[in-house]
Design a protein around this nucleic acid. Structure first.
Lengths: 240, 240
DNA sequence: TTGGTTAATTGACAAATATCAAGCAATGAA
DNA sequence: TTCATTGCTTGATATTTGTCAATTAACCAA
């Protein structure tokens, strides 16, 4: 692993990090301190970064690529979320110094900053701006998970898929055509369904104007799909 | 509503609140400020306190009784969590000044403190100790919801019920006999099942040594129930 | 007590979802 | 190219969960 100051890219990386909402309000001095202990690493795809149940040694920040959070129980595995640039993961475990509730692995080649958890907790005790920023980040995460719970408890698998497609379409700038960001097996797991049922669900969505070819999706009848999905800002709007 | 300082009970209520982890680290001055704007109110059962989608005007703290958090979508309703003394709810919406993602109603007669959200945000910007305490509380809430998601995605309804009974048993000091804290309709909703299926699930659990009579539960064969439930600290341990 | 309301249970059935097995399609390595 | 591997799809079937209707049980006010 490279210590950040030794990296050829540390100037631009510093700037990227400093612009993160999480690090904007804190003092330059404390930011320096965090960066001095930090590592920058590029990981290939499918690399396990942290394991469920382990203590959180580092706060992770995804600068490029994407990371899957997943969990296991009773020999089963489920995908919990995807982390994309630029955001953190296992912040809650880090500030509580508690075991990770989820594992994480890279989905693609990813640039990740690792900041030692003790540094985070130490600076967090010193720097009010940072503490306040952590609150905003955690509140955001909390609300995301609540929305996900509502999605799971209220909707059938087809409704979950329909709403997922609408959200993904928005995230990719709202064009009728877009590409699924990962394979369908993982998508099925994320949506709490089996791959077989995801296939069947996609076929049922053809009646609502959704065409697929491999990972390519085209929403031909937006209104029909929305009538089926009944999206709600209190479930599907990432900002609200 | 009573302003706190006018309440006959404000001395002991102050003390109770000050002992809350959320308010322990903050300065006396800022605590006073929060209390000056605060209201204390006793509500009868089944009173709606906040509604999903509304802005959060007050941070709520349950001093006595219990409060149900629930959500609605498409003419359906689901129970999300139960809040018991002494803890807060809608903290995330308050600090983000965002719409509530859940509604709340009293389950029983409840004593609740309401602190105006602008006060919370103002003091939160002034007082580092408070900001740090908010982080701890939010991290705890976040982890609870993650655990709940794992419970939902991994387990069948009978496994969810089995694990719920084990958790509730622990919460009530681990005796073989205990009483369900609310009616079965609400329990079914909390566990993402229909009342009919909850009935049937209780009957299936008889084979695993669970006897019920009304709200009274007796776990006669702890080992059998645990073998079915396969509880995991990373899902079922409220502390970890 | 009575009657009226709601909660809880039961059975029959329908819908949703999971599982198993097979086959096809896409991908990458030799 | 070929083979092998993996991902995706399809059909048949099993299991789980939901719905509807009817009944019983519990509770409360008059």
């Amino acid at each position: 692993m490279d210590r950040l100051p030794n990296s050829k890219h540390f100037d631009s990386t510093f700037k990227d990090l400093r612009e993160l909402e999480l690090f904007q309000a804190m003092s330059g001095e404390n930011f320096e301190r965090l960066m001095q202990g930090a590592y920058l690493q590029t990981f290939p795809p499918q690399v396990d970064l942290i394991a469920e149940g382990e203590r959180s040694d580092f706060l992770h920040i995804v600068l490029a690529g994407s990371v899957e959070l997943y969990a296991q129980w009773n020999n089963r595995e489920t995908s919990m979320a995807t982390v994309r640039p630029t955001s953190t993961f296992i912040l809650a475990a880090t500030v509580k110094d508690a075991p990770n509730l989820m594992s994480a692995r890279t989905l693609e080649k990813s640039r990740i900053v690792l900041i030692p958890s003790p540094d985070i907790r130490a600076v967090f005790d010193l720097d009010c701006g940072f503490a306040r920023a952590v609150v905003q980040e955690l509140a955001q995460c909390y609300r995301s998970v609540i929305k996900n719970t509502k999605d799971l408890k209220f909707r059938t698998s087809i409704e979950r898929l329909a709403n997922y497609l609408l959200r993904e379409q928005k995230r990719q700038n709202g064009q009728a055509q877009f590409t699924l960001p990962f394979d369908k097996k993982r998508l099925a797991s994320l949506l709490a369904m089996r791959p077989e049922n995801l296939s069947r669900a996609f076929r049922q969505l053809q009646d609502f104007g959704v065409q697929t070819q491999g990972a390519r999706v085209e929403i031909q009848h937006q209104a029909d799909l929305e009538a089926l999905a009944k999206p709600s800002p209190l479930i599907d709007d990432p900002a609200s």
